[in-house]
Simulated scan of single mutants.
Amino acid sequence: MSKKFEIRREVVVPGTPEQIWAAISAETAGWMFPSPLEIPADGSRPDSPVIATWEPPTELGIHMDGPDGWFNHLEYLVEARDNSTAVVRYVHAGVFADDWDNQYDGASKHTDFYLHSLGQYVRYFAGQSATYVSAEGPEASGTPAAMATLRSALGIGSDTAVDDTVTFDVPGFGTITAVVDYLNDWFVGLRTDDALLRFYGRNAFGGNVDVAHHLFAAGADGEAASAGWKGWLDGVYA
């Protein structure tokens, strides 16, 4: 049975409203996933029926309707604060058709991670073009212990904390040294000089562990990176 949901968050982001506006409208590949919206080069309102509100740099609303009362609504309100920071008030509302509690729990936890990644992008990589890559782990990464296996492969121990540094090897990429910027039972966020590396424990919500990374190095080969991380995940869970 379908049922409505609403997720609300308020976060402080280290950046200006203009930087945050660019991130949530045109640069989503740098912290979440690529947007299907085509933003005109001059930053004007896209010619899309899903744009509900377009008030740069303070208010963005996206609304999609579907059959049988289905809808999906996203809203960002950005307010400048002192010391080059801003408050972002975020709303995600819509309808879940099945397994409401599990879907809501997963969406809520993903929201916290995405908004954290927004802050990391604006603070460290604002305005930089990103190559977005993703890869899904094998069936073995869908077990309850899968995230513990992943953390071990990343060099994350029981005493590892945010702001610690980890080092691990990825075939085809060599040794990666990264700062831990997010860490809990469901997600791992790592930051290097030219990437945000995101690891999702979707095994907790009926899926597999997977990765979605944001590469800022010039000339990054997305296909090769995706294949490389897929191979790494397969090896971790072999």
Results as ranks from 00 to 15, higher is better:
Met1Cys: 10
Phe5Ile: 11
Glu10Lys: 07
Val11Phe: 11
Thr16Cys: 04
Pro17Val: 11
Glu18Met: 08
Ala26Leu: 03
Glu27His: 12
Met32Asp: 01
Ser44Trp: 10
Arg45Tyr: 01
Pro46Glu: 11
Trp54Phe: 15
Glu55Cys: 01
Gly61Gln: 09
Pro67Phe: 01
Asn72Asp: 13
Ala80His: 08
Asn83Leu: 03
Asn83Met: 03
Val88Met: 06
Arg89His: 08
His92Val: 04
Ala93Gln: 13
Gly94Ile: 14
Val95Leu: 10
Phe96Tyr: 15
Ala97Val: 13
Gly106Ala: 14
His110Gly: 04
His110Cys: 06
Leu115Ser: 05
Leu118Phe: 09
Gln120Ser: 08
Tyr121Lys: 08
Val122Arg: 02
Val122Met: 07
Gly127Thr: 09
Gly127Asp: 07
Ala130Asn: 04
Gly137Tyr: 12
Ala140Tyr: 00
Gly142Thr: 09
Thr160Asn: 07
Ala161Phe: 03
Val166Cys: 07
Asp169Phe: 10
Phe173Ile: 12
Thr175Arg: 15
Ile176Phe: 02
Ile176His: 06
Val179Leu: 07
Asn184Trp: 05
Gly189Phe: 02
Leu190Lys: 02
Leu190Gln: 03
Thr192Val: 05
Arg198Gln: 15
Gly206Leu: 08
Asp210Lys: 00
His214Leu: 09
Leu215Tyr: 13
Phe216Asn: 07
Gly219Ile: 05
Ala225Val: 05
Ser226Ile: 01
Trp232Asp: 13
Asp234Glu: 15
Gly235Ile: 01
Gly235Gln: 14
Tyr237Leu: 08
